[in-house]
Write a protein that binds this DNA or RNA. Structure first.
Lengths: 182, 182
DNA sequence: GCCTTAATGCAATATATTTGCGTTAGTGGA
DNA sequence: TCCACTAACGCAAATATATTGCATTAAGGC
């Protein structure tokens, strides 16, 4: 019976919430490089050892918080047509990701375990799949999600991560136009 | 006079070399998460405080080492034609970056200061510019480097970083074909 | 309500980082 | 070549962070 069960309710969940919000609060006030686990523990009203045991180390914790914060709460806006849906979603995506906190979330996700990164790009796929389902329902034809990742998302993320270019709205619209041109 | 000069010769350079090779040696034998500064210091025959003072912290050191290791020693192979040059370069790039050490270098570069990342993508640009110069010299027409970054490099890097797909040779050739198709 | 045990807190220990100070060794000028 | 200047280093003490054993708390199933 009961082997290696993972608990989800009550105290355990409350502590996770406290720790997450402590991290987010600290991220607003200081650079990521100066945040420490004891600092988070104190703000969350928890013992440091609890954090170490649950999350392993700071990278994993930050990645976990970043993923939780990126988790979509709502579907992308429905503007009535696939092209405008796509533009609205991409522009918002680029703006969120290129902001200071967005960049931090990206690097945290990539520094943490590989599972965080997979989840993160899973969210993006999910959003694009939503747009695809809408397009099909409207009879506007298909939307190739893989191709959208390669032609639109990947360049935006690349330039944000490597800092060699700002993903301006015009640049994003250019990527979308290239994608739509069959 | 002499304000804030930076020394380059002798001991200082030797120590940098020792530390770099110590890091590379350690990276071969263990996971990046278990490497510590004192560990590196001992293998390099140096005091930990020296490393802390020169590089700040582990992230910056690893980023520095990764950048140094990515710095191109030779130009990409000259195969006689732009298309084959491009294919040769991209396939090698994808293979290097998707290897275990390649992934580590990428995340190290992105975790370290922003300057490391810029240098890193500068190397890629430089290689593509070399291919472009060759193509122009041969009278094969132009090669749009920015577009190559967006259409070929960015998707490869994206999938390596987020781990949602392996950049196989066939996949890379598909990206190249898409790029060449005007 | 009772039992089992995952999850936490506490405290002791081990490890890593920072810092003050004396020493070594590049660098430029005489 | 020698000398003055000082950046960069080594050492060791002080501080901060990470790990671990053990007692305690509280989910989840009965």
């Amino acid at each position: 019976m009961a082997k290696e069960m993972i608990r989800q309710g009550g105290r355990s969940a409350r502590i996770q919430a406290e720790v997450h919000s402590a991290v987010q609060a600290l991220l607003k006030g200081m650079d990521r490089a100066e945040i420490t686990v004891p600092m988070i523990a104190e703000k969350a009203g928890v013992t440091p050892s609890t954090i170490y045991r649950r999350w392993g180390d700071l990278s994993d914790l930050l990645a976990d918080v970043a993923v939780a914060h990126m988790r979509p709460i709502a579907d992308p806006e429905d503007t009535g047509a696939m092209e405008s849906d796509l533009e609205a979603f991409i522009l918002q995506y680029a703006e969120e990701m290129s902001s200071k906190v967005g960049r931090q979330m990206l690097t945290d996700v990539l520094s943490g375990g590989n599972t965080a990164a997979i989840k993160c790009c899973g969210f993006t796929n999910q959003h694009l799949e939503t747009l695809r389902a809408r397009a099909l329902a409207r009879g506007e034809g298909d939307l190739d999600v893989e191709r959208a990742i390669d032609l639109i998302i990947a360049p935006i993320v690349y330039h944000i991560l490597f800092g060699d270019r700002e993903p301006s709205a015009d640049y994003c619209r250019g990527l979308i136009a290239r994608f739509l041109k069959t």
